[in-house]
Simulated scan of single mutants.
Amino acid sequence: MSPIETERLRLRRWRDADRAPFAAMSADPAVMEFFPSLLTPDQASAFIDRVEAHWDAHGFGNYALEERATGAFVGLTGLFKVFPEAHFAPSVEIGWRLARPFWSQGYAREAAEAVIATAFAEHDFPEIVAFTAVPNIRSAALMQRLGMTRNAADDFDHPGIAVGHPLRRHVLYRLSRADYERRERA
């Protein structure tokens, strides 16, 4: 997928300079509230390496977000192939994670809408999915604002989270190409 510019954001591939602010963001308990654990700097760096390898292998991935006006690192938004154990695999997931200073400014929605538009324009994905832990109502609300829909029968226990952990149960939202195109024509 191509780099993307929105009114306020630049969505681009990762740079070495992104490692420190991403590590700081990934060690923030508020940012990581709905993840099973915080990331160490080494884990955060390894995550970026996996993201870049995914880009190289598939031609899409999670973008690093930067604020156009300041060049500040904002977070990430992008696409990733869903883990193969998922009942909805194979599919492509959209996700986002923003540093706390950039919350409640509409950046996550702005970036996600741009990623979805580019993904459907440049790839033949039949749908894009998103999922989060049940208590993460902010992300679920964004999924709804993006036009994604949930069928409770699709909800699942995340295989990467321990049995009994309060974040194991996840909700799944979907956006089909047909629904996206219908909404864009309206």
Rank of each mutant, 00 (worst) to 15 (best):
R150E: 13
G147V: 01
V129W: 01
E52M: 15
L175F: 07
A89C: 10
R138H: 10
S2T: 14
V51N: 02
T40N: 09
F102E: 02
F34V: 09
E33A: 13
N62Q: 13
Y180A: 03
E85V: 07
W96T: 12
G160R: 10
R177W: 07
I137S: 13
I94N: 01
Y180W: 15
A152H: 03
P126W: 04
L65Y: 03
A24C: 07
A69W: 10
H165T: 11
G95M: 10
S176P: 05
D18K: 04
A57V: 08
I128Q: 02
E67G: 00
H158C: 06
I128A: 06
V163E: 15
S139F: 01
A162D: 13
A112W: 08
R10G: 04
P41S: 05
A89M: 05
V134H: 09
D56P: 01
D42W: 07
V74N: 04
T149P: 00
R50P: 01
A112L: 13
I48C: 13
D18G: 06
E113D: 10
F156V: 08
P36T: 08
F80Q: 13
E113M: 13
A108D: 07
E113A: 12
A133H: 07
S2D: 14
V74L: 08
E122T: 14
Y63I: 05
L76N: 03
R50G: 12
H158A: 06
A72G: 10
T132M: 14
L98P: 00
D179T: 10
T40I: 07
P29N: 13
M32C: 14
F80C: 05
F60M: 07
G59L: 07
M25H: 00
P135C: 12
E7K: 07
D28K: 09
S176N: 11
M148K: 03
A20K: 13
W55S: 04
A178Y: 02
L142N: 04
A152M: 00
R182K: 12
F120D: 02
R145H: 13
R8V: 04
W96D: 05
D157N: 11
F102T: 01
A130I: 02
L65W: 01
D154R: 08
T77Y: 00
E110Y: 04
I128L: 15
T6Q: 06
T132A: 15
M25Y: 02
S176V: 07
T118A: 15
S91E: 10
Q43L: 11
A108K: 02
F83Q: 12
N151T: 11
